[in-house]
């Protein structure tokens, strides 16, 4: 892959990327979560990078349309980092591997900071003010979150600058790095499957009055935790790759299956 280190993005483009990161969840769905918005936010920058190179743009779009679920307030960091890689036309494997490796830890950090720490504190303080009839409660609440939103510019520039520095050093060994990035990505996907796909069988088999066997707790979990989750992922993988089944069919089947099994009390 030719690596021409021409910079095509300026500060304005990164500022725009930071704002557009608000669209992260615009096309949210359970199959690929934030993918459509994640791509949408990066489109202006990607268009500028690839210009007339339709194939390059298409490859970048396809990659960015893969499953992603990260934290809205921190996503700018990831977008900035990846866009700097796109700009220097880094190997697609590196970009993809980095993305897959980073989004989940970033989500975990973001949830811990914003949902579990900041919200209870800010909500607690502001609510007590509001309950006493002070309009300062909601106003302070709003200002705090406005400041958090403004941080998106900081995160996005941080990611971008970091990427630019890193990319300069990695271009000559990109093949090896791409492989290493894929290793990292696959490790994290393994973890993602265990934590994002949840299948809980509710069925209990009554042996006699003294003993009932809960299929999930006494059977599946005893074999291996999350065995149904990874099993279902590989079943889908098999249908997609070997049988060339359309993902739409798989989504419909999964959705109907979930409702039907819920009706019979199995899931």
């Amino acid at each position: 892959m030719a690596s021409d280190n021409k910079k095509v993005l300026d500060k304005k483009d990164i500022n725009r990327l930071a704002f557009d990161s608000i669209f992260l969840q615009a096309g949210f769905n359970y199959e690929r979560m934030q993918a459509c918005g994640f791509l949408g936010a990066q489109l202006p920058a990607l268009k500028k990078i690839y210009k007339d190179d339709k194939e390059g743009l298409s490859a970048a779009m396809t990659d960015n349309l893969e499953f992603i679920n990260t934290h809205p307030n921190l996503v700018g960091f990831l977008m900035g980092l990846l866009i700097s890689m796109e700009e220097s036309k880094a190997d697609r494997g590196i970009i993809k591997g980095l993305k897959v490796a980073l989004f989940a830890p970033l989500a975990g950090i973001g949830d811990a900071i914003f949902w579990f720490t900041l919200l209870p504190i800010v909500a607690g303080i502001c609510s007590s003010m509001a309950m006493e009839g002070s309009v300062l409660g909601p106003i302070i609440f709003f200002l705090v979150y406005l400041a958090i939103f403004a941080m998106r510019w900081f995160w996005t520039h941080l990611g971008y600058n970091l990427g630019v520095k890193a990319v300069a050093q990695i271009t000559d060994i990109s093949e090896v790095l791409s492989k290493a990035a894929t290793v990292l990505g696959c490790t994290v996907i393994g973890g993602l499957i265990a934590s994002y796909v949840s299948i809980n069988v509710q069925t209990q088999i009554v042996v006699n009055e003294a003993k009932t066997v809960a299929l999930q707790a006494d059977f599946f979990d005893k074999i291996f935790p999350n065995i149904l989750s990874i099993g279902y992922v590989f079943l889908m993988y098999y249908f997609l790759k070997k049988k060339k089944v359309s993902p739409v069919v798989l989504i419909i089947v999964t959705f109907v299956l979930a409702i039907v099994l819920s009706f019979f009390g199995i899931l």
Partner: peptide, 25 residues
């Protein structure tokens, strides 16, 4: 069962997304 069914579907549907990801990686 219907409302619970939506939640169940939400728990399983990411499997299709991961399978798509694995298909390429």
């Amino acid at each position: 069962w219907l409302t619970h069914g939506f939640e169940v579907a939400g728990g399983i549907l990411p499997a299709v997304g991961f399978a798509m990801l694995l298909k390429v990686m």
